[in-house]
Amino acid sequence: MSNYLEDLAQSVIVGQEDRVKQLTQQAIDSGADPVEIINQGLIPGMNVVGARFKVGQMFVPEVLMSARAMNGGMELVKPLLLDEELPTAGKVVLGTVKGDLHDIGKNLVGMMLESAGFTVVNLGVDAGPDKFLQAIKEHKPGIIGLSALLTTTMLSMKDTIEVLKEEGLRDKVKVIIGGAPISQDFADEIGADGFAPDAASATDLCKKLLA
C-alpha cells in the first residue's frame, strides 16, 4: 500500500494531474483512508515542490503544475472527508485595487498560496473597498491581499482599510499588501498587517499571520 503513496507524491512533484487523479481514484476504490491519501501522498509531494522551489531547483510553472495535480487529487478525496478533516492552511481573498488592471503579480501570489494549501478567492482587477467588503462578508477569509502597480491606485489600499474600520471588520481579518511601489513603510503608514516583496514571501507571511 505504501508504494502507491510514494507514487502519488512523485506524480505531484512532476505535475502529472492525470496520474495523480488515477492513483487517487484507485486508492479510494481499494478502500484507502482518505486522510492518509492527503497527508501521506498529496501533501508530502507538494512539500518537496515547495522546498525545491525555494532553493531554485524548480520553476514557477512547474510549481503551478504540481499544485494543479495535487488539487486534482484533492477534489476526488474531499467529498469523502468530514468538514473538520478538510485540510486548508486558511482562506485568502486577493484583488488588484480600484483603478488598476495589472494582475500578473497578484495572480502569482494566488498560485503560490494555493500550492501551499491555502484556499484563494480571486476578485480580479479594479477591486474597490466595496468589493473587498462584500467578499469578506461572503467568504469570511482570514486574510485579504491587496495589489497595486500604480502609485495613484495604491491609495485605494488605505481606503479599503478605512472602510473595514467603519464596518467594524478590521479586527476580523488580516490585511496584506504588495506590488512594485509598495513597501513595509507604506504598509505601516496605512495600518496594514503585512507586506511581502514577492509571491513566495507572501505565502510565508500568510502562514505567519494565521499561525
Partner: peptide, 13 residues
Amino acid sequence: MGGVFTIMDMRTT
C-alpha cells in the same frame, strides 16, 4: 513603437 520585452525569471519572478 517599442517597449521593454523581456522574460520573467522563473525562480524569483
